[in-house]
């Protein structure tokens, strides 16, 4: 774990807490975004976390960065922070220097590569509308590559996800690859785990806020002459949410630490898979606790529940990991108990 972790997280939390209000998040629905927050993050060099100081970065490691992703989720910050920093971090894994210009990524499905030209369509690319570069997956024959392309000349069909975050369909028709690096299946697995760790982190952040909003509301809202948290049926919702939130926070912390230590097992896959259940359970219970006010646009709750609903179907989904895990289990000579205990122990040492 990096020493700067706490300090960096504090700065980011302070910025987001004060600068990202309900109205700030609403900007996305008016085709705007929180450029001032983005500027503040840049001024504080936060886009350079997990970039070494020799390379002009701010130091820290992936664990620090993932913790910041948790905060982005917790405050629903409408900035392309995760997209830009993770795109550059992916490039770093294959020894390519990151870009200053706003960069995004999409590595779930491959483009076709013919010599240096890219063909194909990428769907639901985050923040492509504002980004200048994209890190993508491409294929030539049976060889996979990580490529970088300019978005300037790409054909974009802009849309949004369920939470009004910018998502675009990007069409590549004979577009030049600025960079192309061949990768192995093993490298691809590592990159997909990084992307998933980012999703898990932001989802856990949003989930935490949904839970906290519900606790707060249950204390403030009075019915039948007392705060609603005094009712046992409401208490049951709160208890269930507390369980899900704690379970996911412990799992997410584990994933972050293991990646920070340079170890990668199946933890991230398990966490992502379980996160689907947790998102559903917490979002459902939170809306039930908030009742009518929670389904209005005026209340903040939807800014987080909509994100959970959107994020669970993006990138490497629970469905994807369920398939990967099943495949591994099918091929494994170990039984379940051996593989669960090996998992923990093979990748972990005190």
């Amino acid at each position: 774990m990096s020493e700067i972790k706490e300090m960096v997280a504090e700065v980011v939390e302070k910025v987001l807490k004060h600068k990202v209000e309900k109205e700030t998040v609403d900007l996305l629905e008016e085709n705007l975004w929180a450029e001032n927050v983005w500027q503040l993050l840049l001024e504080n060099e936060l886009h350079n976390v997990a970039v070494s100081e020799e390379e002009g970065g701010a130091g820290g490691d992936i664990e620090d960065l993932l913790e910041l992703y948790g905060l982005i989720g917790k405050y629903a910050a409408p900035v392309p922070f995760i997209e830009h920093t993770l795109a550059n971090y992916l490039l770093k894994q294959i020894d390519i220097k990151g870009y200053e210009q706003l960069t995004t990524y999409s590595i779930t499905a491959p483009l076709q590569l013919k010599e240096d030209a890219l063909f194909g369509t990428l769907k639901h690319v985050p923040w492509a509308k504002y980004a200048e570069k994209i890190v993508a997956l491409a294929q030539e024959g049976s060889q996979q590559f990580i490529v970088v392309a300019d978005l300037e000349n790409a054909v974009l069909k802009n849309g949004t996800n369920l939470a009004a975050e910018p998502r675009s369909e990007v069409v590549f028709e004979n577009m030049k690859a600025l960079q192309k690096v061949p990768i192995t299946a093993k490298q691809y697995m590592s990159l997909s785990k990084l992307v998933t760790a980012a999703s898990v982190s932001k989802m856990n952040g949003a989930l935490t806020t949904v839970f906290q909003l519900s606790v707060q509301f249950s204390k403030e809202r009075e019915q039948f002459g007392r705060p609603i948290h005094r009712f046992q049926l409401v208490q049951q919702h709160l208890a269930n949410m507390a369980g899900e939130q704690t379970l996911m926070t412990v799992a997410t912390n584990n994933v972050q630490t293991l990646l920070g230590d340079g170890q990668e097992g199946l933890e991230v896959a398990y966490t992502r898979l379980r996160m689907d259940d947790a998102s559903r359970a917490v979002a459902t219970a939170a809306h039930q606790v908030h009742a009518a006010i929670g389904v209005t646009h005026e209340h903040r709750l939807h800014q987080f529940t909509r994100r959970l609903w959107a994020w669970r179907d993006e990138e490497f989904t629970a469905r994807y990991w369920k398939q990967q895990l099943a495949k591994q289990m099918l091929e494994s000579k170990m039984d379940l108990w051996e593989s669960i205990t090996e998992q923990n122990e093979a990748h972990v040492h005190a």
């Binding site: 379970l247 996911m248 412990v250 799992a251 584990n254 933890e267 896959a269 398990y270 966490t271 898979l273 379980r274 259940d277 990991w321 369920k322 398939q323 895990l325 099943a326 289990m329 099918l330 379940l336 669960i340 998992q343 923990n344």
Partner: peptide, 16 residues
């Protein structure tokens, strides 16, 4: 097996 993996994921989180 895919369905069973949901249980395994839950087991893993609970165990942590």
């Amino acid at each position: 097996l895919e369905e069973a993996m949901k249980l395994v994921a839950e087991l893993w989180s609970l165990r942590n």
